[in-house]
């Protein structure tokens, strides 16, 4: 199994606060990898470091064997590494279809192609993916008028529209109606198996991540605490302490 994202000894501090300290982990191609940890353990900081939102202090981050820790957000995104946001970011003033069309993979387009109008296939693909996440009925509504959970689904669909190689999801089930969560787990798995997208998921909901992930990493206080298969993590005393110690 080949590793698609390799993180070697990454450290990041904000002022005096250590957000990540010497974190080393890797994501296998075609897998669903989970990242858990108590609040403030540096999960989102690690995501931001991977996709290039801020320079890291030390260490190396590789994507498909290429060093990306010095690249900008756009360059990394154009390599096929896409992320969604914890607080969803969608185009609230446009309807869902337009949101989807904007998310077409511009990195695969030549400049000339970007001056074309959207083709019939683009519209079909947008409709298909909106149906996939269950937003087909609402596709002409302004995205801003959707509920928070629906916006998360839309953002997920937009990410799929972009045909990424790897997708970083920051808490995909937060704010989603519990009855829909099973459906979402199913969709994430299908996105992984049918579209062949490697997923790297931050998740607080233990039930979700245990059902979803092939492999889980646990962060605490910015350092890697444990790693392993879901059942290993579930029974790891250090992980249990880290979570219980919070209360």
């Amino acid at each position: 199994m080949s590793e698609i994202i390799q993180i070697q000894g990454v450290s990041k501090t904000f002022g005096g606060v250590v957000a990540n300290n010497n974190v080393t982990l890797s994501v296998n191609k075609g897998d669903i990898t989970g990242l858990i940890g108590p609040n403030g353990s540096g999960k989102t900081t690690l995501f931001n470091s991977i996709v290039g939102y801020h320079p890291i202090d030390s260490g190396s981050i590789q994507f498909e064997g290429r060093e990306i820790s010095r690249k900008s957000v756009q360059d990394i995104a154009r390599m096929g590494l896409i992320r969604t946001f914890q607080q969803t970011r969608i185009y609230g003033k446009m309807n869902c279809v337009k949101n989807m069309l904007i998310s077409l993979p511009h990195r695969k387009m030549s400049l000339l192609e970007s001056f074309k109008q959207n083709s019939e296939q683009d519209f079909e693909k947008a409709d298909r993916l909106l149906e996939f996440v269950g937003l087909y009925e609402k596709r002409y509504l302004n995205a801003g008028s959707l509920s928070f959970g629906q916006q998360k689904l839309l953002e997920f669909a937009m990410a799929l529209m972009n045909e990424p190689t790897a997708l970083l999801l920051d808490e995909p089930t937060a704010g989603i109606n519990p009855t829909l969560i099973n459906g979402l787990i199913d969709r994430l798995k299908r996105a992984n198996s049918e579209f062949g997208i490697t997923l790297f998921v931050i998740e607080h909901n233990m039930r979700v991540i245990m059902n979803l992930a092939d492999r889980i990493y646990c962060l605490a206080h910015g350092e890697l605490l444990a790693e392993g298969r879901p059942e290993e993590i579930q029974n790891n005393q250090k992980v249990i302490d880290a979570y219980l110690g919070e209360h």
Partner: peptide, 24 residues
């Protein structure tokens, strides 16, 4: 009416998101 036009709107509404989606 082109994809380019839509990309301009995307830059207007949320440039950071557009960057994160890999738009040039």
């Amino acid at each position: 009416s082109t994809r380019f036009g839509a990309a301009l709107n995307a830059i207007r509404d949320d440039e950071e998101k557009a960057e994160a989606m890999g738009l040039h």
